[in-house]
């Protein structure tokens, strides 16, 4: 089910888990607001990771923890430090892309 959500003066479509369903609606203010909702205060390193996963998404590369570890952007330990609670879910939510379906 898709719902409308008001965020920093924008209306975005989200699913029942709060993931955006239309990436074209995303911008950095929305990313920042989604991060705040998920108790993350964004640093340049956070943004580097978000940009990386958005690029992978645009190239249709499925995301996994292993891929993040091999990205050259962050290692797995740092990824868990940047997004402590469910890192891949949180990072994709902030990035405005669908939740990864991978179990690894």
């Amino acid at each position: 089910m898709i719902m409308l959500k008001e965020l920093v003066g924008n209306t975005i479509d989200v699913n029942e888990e709060g993931f955006m369903t239309d990436f074209t609606q995303w911008n950095t203010q929305i990313g920042e607001a989604l991060a705040t909702e998920n108790e993350i205060s964004m640093t340049p390193k956070h943004w580097e990771v978000i940009t990386y996963i958005q690029t992978e998404y645009k190239n249709n590369v499925p995301l996994s923890i292993r891929k993040i570890g091999k990205s050259g952007v962050v290692d797995i330990k740092e990824f868990y430090t940047l997004f402590p609670n469910a890192p891949l879910k949180t990072a994709t939510k902030i990035a405005g892309i669908p939740k990864p379906v991978s179990c690894i």
Binding site: P62, I65, R66, G69, D75, I76, K77, Y80, S102, I104
Partner: peptide
Amino acid sequence: KLDMPPVREFLEILSASG
């Protein structure tokens, strides 16, 4: 093919993941 790491790499991933 499913991006499942070999045992040693998987152990490193687990450790890095806490």
